[in-house]
Amino acid sequence: MPRYRRWFVPGGTYFFTVNLLRRDSCFLVEHIDNLRAAYRDAARRQPFETVAICVLPNHLHCIWTLPDGDSDFPGRWRRIKSDFSRRLPRTADLASGRRRGERGIWQRRYWEHVITDADDLAAHVDYIHHNPVKHGLVADMDDWPYSSWRRWRRETKSWASPPGSLRGGETE
């Protein structure tokens, strides 16, 4: 099996897809307050800017810009995932096959992509915000409550171009 190599760019802007282990789970939206608290705490401890985000029932997509000189996105994801898991009630229906102290909630790996330019950023922001429509959760992006779409539209007038630079605003 080939070993996956991550590309660490200090101060980089990254697109992420992070999945729950059980694809039939709705934990992320059922426990959105726990996810928001874990996300907020991680950003407070190791700052990053959220350019765009969309939380779906069993996975999430986001774009982060890390501080200059910092490329530790794995530490941030470890913190978010473990903090969210700890916040879930012990009665939550979790997947089996746990090991190393895991609660069996998250897939161990996640997808990341380094954003290379403004066109790449616009394409990934488009993908993130359109995801609830793609998955048939809503007919219109305005109807999905767990997304930065409304903030993005409000700040950009034209949603295909980022506000100012690769550094977006805060999450809703």
Rank of each mutant, 00 (worst) to 15 (best):
M1G: 13
M1Y: 07
M1A: 11
P2M: 14
P2V: 05
R6P: 08
W7A: 05
W7M: 10
F8R: 08
F8S: 06
V9N: 00
P10K: 06
T13W: 00
Y14A: 00
F15L: 00
F15Q: 00
T17N: 04
T17P: 09
V18P: 01
L21P: 13
R23F: 05
R23H: 14
R23C: 06
D24Y: 10
S25D: 11
S25N: 08
C26M: 07
L28F: 13
E30N: 11
I32E: 15
N34F: 05
L35G: 07
L35K: 04
A37H: 05
A37I: 03
A37E: 13
A37T: 06
A38K: 03
R40S: 06
R44F: 03
Q46L: 03
P47C: 02
E49Y: 00
T50E: 04
C54P: 06
C54V: 11
V55K: 04
P57W: 09
P57L: 12
N58E: 06
H59G: 09
W64G: 00
W64T: 00
D68G: 01
D68E: 08
G69S: 06
D70F: 02
D70N: 12
S71M: 10
D72N: 15
F73E: 00
P74Q: 04
G75N: 09
W77R: 01
R79P: 05
R79T: 01
R79E: 07
K81P: 00
S82L: 02
F84K: 00
R86A: 06
P89S: 12
P89G: 15
R90N: 14
D93Q: 05
L94C: 15
A95D: 01
S96T: 14
R99V: 12
R99I: 12
R100T: 14
G101M: 13
R103S: 08
R103G: 13
Q107P: 14
R109N: 13
W111I: 07
A118L: 12
D119K: 03
D119P: 02
A122T: 10
A123P: 01
N131L: 02
P132N: 11
K134I: 11
G136I: 01
L137G: 11
V138M: 07
A139D: 09
D140K: 14
M141Q: 12
M141R: 13
D142H: 12
D142M: 15
D142G: 15
D143R: 14
P145H: 15
S147K: 04
S147E: 13
W149E: 10
W149L: 12
R150Q: 15
R150D: 11
R150S: 15
R151P: 04
W152I: 13
T156F: 11
K157W: 10
K157M: 12
S165G: 04
L166E: 05
L166G: 04
G168Y: 05
